[in-house]
Amino acid sequence: MFALQAEGLTKRYAHGKSPALDGLTLNVSGGQIFTLLGRNGAGKTTFLRIASTQLMPTSGSVFVLGLDCVKEPRRVRERIAVTPQDAETIYPLTARDHIMLSLRMRGMEKGEAMRRTRAAIEALELNDVADINAEWLSGGMKQRVIVAMSIATQAEVVFLDEPSIGLDPVNRRRVWDQLALMRKEGRTVVLTTHYMDEAEILSDTLAVVDKGRLVVQGTPQSVKGSSGGSSMRVEVGGGFSADELKSYGKVVAVAGKNRVLTDTEGARNLSDAALARGTGVSIGPVTLDDVFVDILGGAAEGEADA
């Protein structure tokens, strides 16, 4: 059984000219980390809000753990938790209070809630600040508190909308560790992110959406392979025309520079040519970031790196 199934999901907002979701269809197996990628406004948050029963779709269906999100929201809600985007801490609660509130309001016994709160505080390295007003914490610490509120629950499917935004690299990895632990426990994690490295490292499967439609879905490896079979990326400093570069592979314009996605042979030939002309060259394996830019166009670069 899929943990999450969407079929022809469409959402039109009253104020929007084009649909936020336009017939989106995708499936997510249980016990895995699934990442939704896309530019700003691609429909990621709308999808998460519909699947987590916060928003009604205009048409189409979504099932979470086999339960219809439209017709059985109460049953769905017993088994999910969510970390919204841009959530803020509540004055004057502490980090511990926030996590306890999240667990206790879900009906968890006090002893179990305290145990899970301690574990979350420890896992996200909030020990030193657990009992001070969360309003006084740094942005990254506040974000960890918000994330802890959902991951400390026993929910079988956890939706996280950009959970690592504002976190430094060390704390991002702490959150990743927790998401990986949830997967180990058999829980399903559905997240959105703009960090391509995060999606590549964490995800069992991912999907790229654009203008509310599914562009590609698969494992990070298979999605990377969807870029015309290119395995290498080559960036040259200059001295090559676009037409010339096209003879080596697929050319993607990135921040005024031309990036060539090609195979090993093409990379070798292009780097030789660049070195012969005394032009700087950098070579590396194709990343998810390259594929994202390739699929969605150079304009997405800034957002992909955001």
Partner: peptide, 10 residues
């Protein structure tokens, strides 16, 4: 956004 957390809960 606390209400979002509450809505997506029991």
């Amino acid at each position: 956004k606390f209400q979002d957390i509450v809505v997506a809960s029991p």
